[in-house]
Design a protein around this nucleic acid. Sequence first.
DNA 1: CGCGGTGTTGAGACCTGTCAAGACGTGTGG
DNA 2: CCACACGTCTTGACAGGTCTCAACACCGCG
Lengths: 252, 252
Amino acid sequence: MDLTPPLRGAAEAGLDAHLRKLRARDEVSKEEESAIRGMIADTRKFEPHTVLVREGEELHQSILVVDGWLARTKDNRKGDRQILELHIAGDFADLHGFTLKCLDHSLTALTPTEVALVPHARVRQLIDQHPHLSRLYWFSTNLDAAIQRQWTFALGRLSARARMAHLFCEFFVRLQIIGRTQEEGFELPLTQSQLSECLGLTPVHVNRTLQSLRVQGLVELEGRRLSILDATRLRHVAEFDPDYLYLERRPR
Amino acid sequence: MDLTPPLRGAAEAGLDAHLRKLRARDEVSKEEESAIRGMIADTRKFEPHTVLVREGEELHQSILVVDGWLARTKDNRKGDRQILELHIAGDFADLHGFTLKCLDHSLTALTPTEVALVPHARVRQLIDQHPHLSRLYWFSTNLDAAIQRQWTFALGRLSARARMAHLFCEFFVRLQIIGRTQEEGFELPLTQSQLSECLGLTPVHVNRTLQSLRVQGLVELEGRRLSILDATRLRHVAEFDPDYLYLERRPR
DNA sequence: CGCGGTGTTGAGACCTGTCAAGACGTGTGG
DNA sequence: CCACACGTCTTGACAGGTCTCAACACCGCG
């Protein structure tokens, strides 16, 4: 007897990725797992370039990414866009909205995207009933902040080449956690223009930087797939140290 | 009958600033206030350039700034330092350490600094007994993350001039909340070199950018004091919008 | 078949960095 | 009281990284 509505079926992949992500950092009991699985109210699909949440908008639910790539974005006066953080399957894209009530940035789909919606009322219920999950989700937003710090650091103190290499290293690790890498690479559905919005560069310079990484045999980006040709040297160029991703399973 | 040890007296200023900061965003009851005031275990003083917490170090307490300026810092291989976020009186500098258990950055005193120490065990007790404070401190780390996002944005999409103007606008608002501004300015005890570490610039370029802001009659930095000469134009240059500081008092 | 989005290339401009030297101020020790 | 050292601030000349603008190639899709 299966009482779960069909829409929840679509969310399974997202929930599985989400639990892998959590369990890479802490234990999650069976009971907690089922509480988490019960949070989903609905799922939705979006086309690329859709704005899912606009800066300043009042929020009453949070978004769990099921599939596709989603970005936190902010524009300057001239209209240049900065991508602040990227979200992939298993990420809560705006769990911070639960306490902030409205966002200081927008949420934009970069690719065809499927998301699951979690009403804040259910988040509230969950954390009231499960103190451990309350801390774990607090941790989860703190982890987002750690990634944000690393991006700030990269923009301030790394060259364009190093920043790009760093971004690729980060993608690899994050995708690996949710089982979406192959040995030597992963699917990277972003355009060079979108990469430039992550890196604080122009699309033209991204193109040239990418060539420079390719010429030196570090990576190859072709047909929306990134191949890592020399992981050791890539990490070195990037000054990459995964500690900021807190890949340690311990009580939070 | 006063049972509070003398060391707690030193923390009063920090706690007052801390409560002003919280109450700018949400209500805090008298009972909650006294629970917060009971968290302090100890206070300490540090000289400029002291590293209070080193990247990767295991944490068992959090630091509430009582006086002085404290920075979250990260270095690149070459040794250039990036300041990721600044903390002033009333800020918890590493409350995120409560869930992260160790930090991905260091904490460094930029000026003579006094801090109050809060054992994680007491934080745990506080949030277990006060669900509302639990959310409010979750909010508080999310607010830090919002500031971090704004810095990322500024580094990626604003010019050196705009970034510097933006930093000054942010300082003004944050200091105003804790009552440390005068009408037209505030005490800014940072060196140009430390400013360059915030802005992802070199000290030489900070000097020139500062001159350009002064020549245009926007600000003047003299004797560790920043005077804002034309707030309207400064905000315009900075593209400053304080929404990201969430200065609204509402249930979190 | 044509069109729009994407990727590529070149030339030149501009912003910011690098290096080096000197000015200024303050605290310390002789 | 002076001499000196050290950190900070300032300035100049030059180098280099990244941006701008413009043109063109490529490709999937209607």
